[in-house]
Design a protein around this nucleic acid. Structure first.
Lengths: 118, 118
DNA sequence: CCATAGTACCTTGACAAACATAGTACTATT
DNA sequence: AATAGTACTATGTTTGTCAAGGTACTATGG
């Protein structure tokens, strides 16, 4: 599995958006988000746990998410994350940036001189 | 100009492909490639010179391009770059990877649980 | 009862790409 | 003489990703 042709450098810069996209659909915790990313990609991409937890810290520091401990009476404790209003705005902005950049990127990697934009 | 909403992390990983795309349309030199990238993006993206020359060294080391000095009798000397057969293959591979990754990325940043891929 | 796999979280250190900054050197224009 | 443009290069910093390792609990099969 995970015959990943998706290089990490292509995903780089989208990690935060990917996480926020999951959280805007409901609170979740690290391991579940980790699994859901694999599932969403159809087993084609795995965001490493270390990267994920690094991102949580970054996002929380920037005020885009908040965390709270679940009240599991048994089993491993879970740290849940919730997206903030700021986080939603940040997500929307990132998606907009992505849609915008996508087209330019397409021209840059495939276009010839006749495709010059104005 | 250059009200760049394109973050460098979105371009990251595509630098080599962007350069190879220009070179597969004919030999060129650093400064010209620098200018053409700005032009191709419609003044929306500037690949910094430092990044460009770092990429040249990387690409040459990997055998994807070769360089030779131009025979300018006047003006600053120019170092030309030519794409190799290996470079062309590398370019094709990168474009394929990008097309593949693009769809998955789209799902990851916009998709909900109902969009799970198989 | 013990080994293994799975769930769940976290830290440290290494690496590579992109870039800021700075420099060299020549040409053309004012 | 000053400035802007062309053209190349080196050095050091920042940042995101990840490999590797660790802790701790639960469930399952032999």
């Amino acid at each position: 599995m995970m015959s990943s042709t998706i290089s990490t450098d292509i995903i780089r810069g989208h990690t935060d958006t990917i996480i926020l996209n999951i959280l805007r659909q409901g609170d979740s915790y690290g391991y579940e988000i980790y699994k859901r990313i694999i599932q969403l990609s159809g087993q084609r991409y795995e965001l490493k746990e270390a990267t994920l937890y690094t991102a949580f810290r970054r996002l929380e520091k920037e005020g885009f998410i908040v965390s709270y401990w679940g009240d599991e009476t048994q089993g491993g404790r879970r740290k849940y994350y919730r997206i903030t209003e700021e986080g939603r705005k940040h997500y929307e902005r990132n998606v907009k940036d992505w849609d915008f950049a996508k087209d330019i990127l397409e021209t840059l990697i495939k276009g010839g001189i006749e495709d010059v934009r104005e």
